[in-house]
Design a protein around this nucleic acid. Structure first.
Lengths: 324, 324
DNA sequence: CGGGCGGGGTTAAACGTTTTTCCTTTGGGC
DNA sequence: GCCCAAAGGAAAAACGTTTAACCCCGCCCG
């Protein structure tokens, strides 16, 4: 691999000058500049990132810390992040904690050792892992905001409202709630958005909390069988909705004929199950893009906005809700 | 951040000795060793990876180059790779080329600039991108082998055979083939495994090629409608199978009552569509693990096996095939 | 005519490691 | 009591950059 020194030798100039050319610094004549650039092309010069990193303290790499790639919510996000990062010349280092906080911590340590310039993080648990605490790099959260951090996510409140409005339009006034975990703000807001939209007109017959991974607790299953005359089940996310639909189907309860179901997220599965799931679509690509842009801004010194960046969501109407 | 020099000063010893302790080199007394280790703990010393990289030429990072994370085949693979890599102290740098060869090339350049120690690669196209050619780091291919490269993948041939045997057991002797692209060995072998298992007893009524992304060509759709009395459609992968099932459903053709369908891969969607898809499961986690282990071996100098590492697959029987 | 200034460039230090070479001590064998 | 070997440790170079400090020359201006 040719180094800056080789270029210097070939052009007959000092390494400092070569460095200045390569970094677009002033104080170097046009003639010399051209020669250096040409030589760089010819030799196929590639900057040695490790050396740069050592000198400048910046690696031009960012970390992406996710709870679980097999949760179909995340791949699209990861793809968006990677792509916009790459177009900014940033390398994405992936951590998939498999839902565990210790994996998350280990990953953060690894990232910090490698000196990533910033981190995009979708936290798995409610508190802040130690490795992140004593890390002086910018962090932006996606999907799951936390006080004190920059964040970009969807307008969950609006999503809940959209769902409520739609429910009403379709004539559902008595619903059951399969909400996500109460310590996740994103779950809480979906729920609140729904409940508070039409408090008088929509009656929630029951509510049970389950994890965002969608696995149904005993309580959830029991409640699902009783249903207490709820005509619509509003799930905290698509995974929950889909699992619920399967469970209902196994017990001979037809969706949407016996009961309607809505999800949230519009993961890829939603259009592939049957009945196809009516749900709220998040603009995942936009979220990923923006997260990287924000991080990139913060990395180059601009103050990071303390208020979260929030994207509007849209209702996608499919076949899991029947009008009554 | 404390450096090796700080440790040295604190213990009252030279930096060389500290380095030797930290790297488990011999020729340092037990007493000194303990003191250094203790000091490292107390100060919370973290090695400066960039500096190490510069000196040693190794970064302890690997690249993972995938065609498309939103293809549900890859997330599990990525997760497996990341996890076993992390447990070996390796950081995974992700490239998602979104199916394009130029994205793939750009990604490879980025990886090579960052000096990753090795690359796990699932190629999108038939030929080898330039940046990879003049890269002297070990590469191991996953899922899609190429002559001249180390590879780990499933036993596609066996998968095809399994499918053929099962088809016969269920009484299907006249089949249609929705094969994957003929320039992908992994597609070719699935097909050949199936066809050559019982050449006399199973008759292939028609065959059409489609991409592994599963989108159905005009020809595929037309053929699907005619079907020519094939009782079973053998798809090149699950994506194709699922799209075919949807297409058939739209046209009032019932699976598996009117025609049976099989897939290949056992992606997450397979158990979520209805009818649930009968397919071949690849041991993705094992493949990911092994790929990392192989790469790690190659990185530490051991010769890489030129023969691919091949994993057995299993048939998972669900509801998309009817016995006749 | 001299001093200052700025454009164009060079020198050298520094970043945090690893590793080679070298030095000092200690202890044992004769 | 001497010599030598081996063990334990130190010094310093090197990796490829960036950057601060410096230098030289020609020009402008007072």
């Amino acid at each position: 691999m040719p180094t800056i020194k080789d270029l210097a030798a070939r052009v007959g100039v000092s390494v400092a000058t070569v460095s200045n050319v390569l970094n677009g610094k002033p104080n170097v004549g046009a003639a010399v500049r051209d020669k250096v650039l040409r030589a760089a092309k010819e030799l196929g010069y590639q900057p040695h990132r490790a050396a740069q990193a050592m000198r400048t303290g910046r690696t031009r790499a960012i970390g992406l810390v996710l709870p679980d790639l097999t949760n179909p919510f995340f791949p699209q996000l990861a793809q968006a992040v990677e792509n916009t990062a790459r177009h900014l010349g940033l390398l994405v280092c992936l951590i998939d904690s498999q839902g565990g906080t210790e994996g998350e911590s280990d990953g953060l340590i690894l990232l910090s050792q490698h000196g990533v310039d910033g981190i995009i993080w979708c936290p798995v648990g409610p508190h802040i892992p130690a490795p992140l605490r004593d890390l002086d790099r910018p962090v932006v959260l996606i999907d799951r905001p936390k006080p004190g951090f920059a964040a970009v996510h969807s307008n969950y409140l609006q999503g809940g409202q959209l769902l409520a409005r739609y429910a009403l339009q379709q004539g559902h006034t008595r619903v059951g709630l399969l909400s996500g975990p109460s310590d996740l703000e994103s779950a809480q807001q979906r729920r609140n958005g729904f409940i508070r939209a039409y408090p008088k007109r929509i009656r929630v017959a029951w509510e049970v909390r389950v994890g965002f991974d969608g696995i149904l607790t005993r309580e959830a299953r029991d409640t699902l069988l009783r249903r207490q005359r709820a005509s619509l089940i509003v799930a905290g996310n698509d995974l929950i909705a889909i699992n619920a639909m399967h469970f209902l189907a196994e017990h001979g309860i037809s969706v949407p004929d016996d009961v309607s179901v809505t999800g949230f997220d519009d993961i890829s599965w939603a259009k592939v199950v049957s009945p196809r799931l009516t749900t709220i679509a998040q603009p995942l690509t936009a979220i990923g893009n923006r997260a990287v842009e924000l991080l990139q801004g913060a990395m180059s010194g601009s103050k990071i906005p303390s208020r979260p960046t929030i994207f509007d969501v849209t209702l996608v109407e499919r076949d899991s809700v029947k009008s009554i």
